[in-house]
């Protein structure tokens, strides 16, 4: 005689409610998708999905508003922080975030991001640094590394011709209105988990009305770097991380307890 064995299946992984149930257009191996996922997980955990408004950039994430299951707007190239400011000022009880690439944030939109921070604008920015202009087919970005080959820096980025890659987290950390500024990477599971914690801190800073928060995420673009997804992850670690060190660059006093509570 055998007794029936009940096998209980436990859900260990599912789509966050804040992520729409649609396929994205991101290339295989692109870490934009991971960035979306951890932002969505944080929105779920904070229980703010239904009062969140996301502002998408111009860049590969231009359709991010379709992928987040929240209200969303699509800004002009680089203007997401201005648009988010307009939204937040009339909807102060809502959670407002921008999601921007490095061309969007560090080139054409550098004035808007810096001034959002100088005003201590109570919004959160997810800054995806993939050292290239992905959407337009791989031109040099302000974050492109010296020697990095792109379609508009043939032979590799030359510092005599184009100067130096901009370190946005460091720049933004120097601004008094910034409450929380961090740089993280998406090149392995440990870093992804660390990145998610930083994103949570950033949103908590906003929820507590502490001012501007930004998490820079080192991200891959295998398509335009012209490498495999695995090589792309390795390149982030070997080449990007040394120039763009990971860590917290600004943690306002009032933000510190939020990090502990988590």
């Amino acid at each position: 005689m055998t007794s029936a064995v009940m096998v209980e299946e436990k859900v260990v992984y599912e789509r966050p409610e804040s992520l729409a149930d649609v396929a994205t257009h991101y290339c295989p191996g692109c870490t934009h998708g991971i960035a979306h996922r951890i932002v969505a997980e944080v929105l779920d955990e904070l229980g703010v999905r239904d009062r969140t408004i996301g502002v998408s950039p111009v860049g590969c994430a231009v359709l991010a508003y379709k992928y987040f299951n929240t209200d969303g707007a699509e800004a002009a190239h680089g203007r997401a922080p201005a648009m988010a400011t307009g939204i937040k000022r009339v909807m102060p009880d809502h959670v407002v975030f921008t999601y921007q690439g490095d061309g969007d944030l560090a080139a054409i939109g550098i004035a808007e991001i810096i001034h959002a921070a100088t005003r201590g604008e109570n919004i959160t920015t997810i800054f995806v640094n993939n050292a290239i202009y992905g959407m337009t087919g791989g031109q040099m970005a302000p974050t492109t590394l010296i020697g990095q080959e792109t379609t508009s820096s043939p032979g590799g980025r030359s510092q005599t011709l184009t100067g130096f890659p901009v370190r946005m987290a460091e720049l933004m950390a120097g601004i008094t209105g910034s409450a929380y500024i961090a740089r993280r990477s998406l090149h392995n599971v440990k870093e992804i988990n660390t990145a998610k914690r930083a994103i949570k801190t950033a949103f908590l800073a906003q929820l507590n009305g502490l001012g501007f928060s930004m998490v820079e995420l080192l991200s891959t673009c295998p398509t335009n770097w012209k490498v495999s997804p695995a090589e792309a992850l390795a390149w982030v670690e070997s080449d990007m991380v040394p120039y763009y060190p990971l860590g917290d660059y600004k943690v306002a006093e009032e933000v510190k307890p939020l990090m502990k509570r988590r």
Binding site: R79, A82, T85, R119
Partner: peptide, 26 residues
Amino acid sequence: RAFVQAESEVASINMVYGAACTGTRV
């Protein structure tokens, strides 16, 4: 009510755009 002296007219019109998306008079 909301008032922001923006960093430029580029920023101010995009702030207007953002607030307009929420259906407020701006």
